[in-house]
């Protein structure tokens, strides 16, 4: 039986704003399947976003949803999680939102290892504002603010997350949608800060200016470029040129999670106080 997406979509809120050929809808559906697979109570989910095309996703789904300011989703999400540590806090963000204007919040959320799942929709461009280069736009690519080709070096989002201290780092693509479900499931189940970079396509403001003749070409590029991490690691260096690994790229269990540590401290202070009261 086909999956019933409608059960999670707010009545009357579709169609979405995304352009024809945009791959965000694929990720959107993956997220809904994951929530269903994990049997998360939708009252217990806060879905937080910043500004950009990806950040419009929360409006469509029937959770507690918060569409904030550009780059700041993780600040808001951290506040929510600290106030209600037993709830599921998920963040959706774009490459510009998460790693340019929100870069500081991104690395510090990773460092804190707070139990939030961050889905970074990387489409290599600022789509909503019409195609300006972002911190992930490949060198040489055309963008409206790089009319002679991009000269600005890129971030590698998984490496950035790992280096900043995230305890779960994965990469999926809109093309490999089934695998994406598994990655998001694992990310949400992981205790600590989990990052999933999701490779997406923006045919309107990126693809068509960069020799992708159709949205399909961008999906095929994902198919050809991203190899399962296990396979990628076994290849000799000359065969990995132009390829990138996907899957769970880094995972460390058992690291202190921020809310657990903080509320552990609260418990300790409470016991000390009770102890002192008994001594008197």
């Amino acid at each position: 039986m086909a999956f019933n997406y409608d059960q999670y979509i707010r009545g009357g809120k579709l169609p979405h704003i995304w352009c024809p050929g945009c791959t965000y809808g694929i990720v959107f559906k993956s997220l809904l399947r994951v929530v269903d697979t994990l049997k998360l109570n939708r009252d217990d989910i806060a879905l937080v976003s910043g500004i950009g095309c990806a950040s419009r996703l929360p409006g469509y789904v029937d959770f507690n949803t918060l569409h904030t300011t550009h780059g700041r989703a993780l600040g808001f999400a951290t506040g929510i999680k600290m106030a209600k540590p037993d709830k599921h806090v998920l963040v959706v963000s774009g490459d510009g939102d998460a790693t340019a204007i929100g870069g500081n919040h991104f690395i510090h959320a990773c460092r804190r290892n707070i139990d939030i799942t961050v889905l970074v929709f990387n489409n290599y461009i600022y789509g909503m504002t019409g195609g300006q280069y972002s911190p992930t736009t490949p060198l040489g690519h055309m963008a409206t603010t790089m009319p002679y080709g991009n000269i600005d070096p890129s971030f590698n989002i998984p490496e950035l997350a790992k280096g900043a201290g995230a305890s779960f780092v994965a990469r999926g693509t809109a093309y490999h949608a089934a695998g994406l479900d598994r990655l998001i499931v694992e990310a949400i189940q992981h205790k600590g800060l989990s990052v999933v970079e999701i490779i997406n396509a923006c045919p309107t403001t990126h693809g068509r200016r960069n020799k992708f003749k159709s949205p399909t070409d961008q999906l095929l590029w994902m198919k050809d470029t991203f190899l399962p991490a296990v396979a990628f690691e076994k290849l000799p260096p000359e065969k990995t040129a132009g390829k990138l690994p996907m899957g769970v790229l880094y995972k460390k269990e058992g690291l202190p999670e921020y809310c657990e540590t903080y509320y552990g401290l609260v418990e300790r202070l409470k016991k000390q106080k009770e102890g002192r009261a008994q001594e008197r």
Binding site: G75, A77, G79, I80
Partner: peptide, 10 residues
């Protein structure tokens, strides 16, 4: 941002 998130969470 955190303060607003905390307030929204009650």
């Amino acid at each position: 941002a955190a303060v607003i998130g905390g307030s929204l969470a009650g």
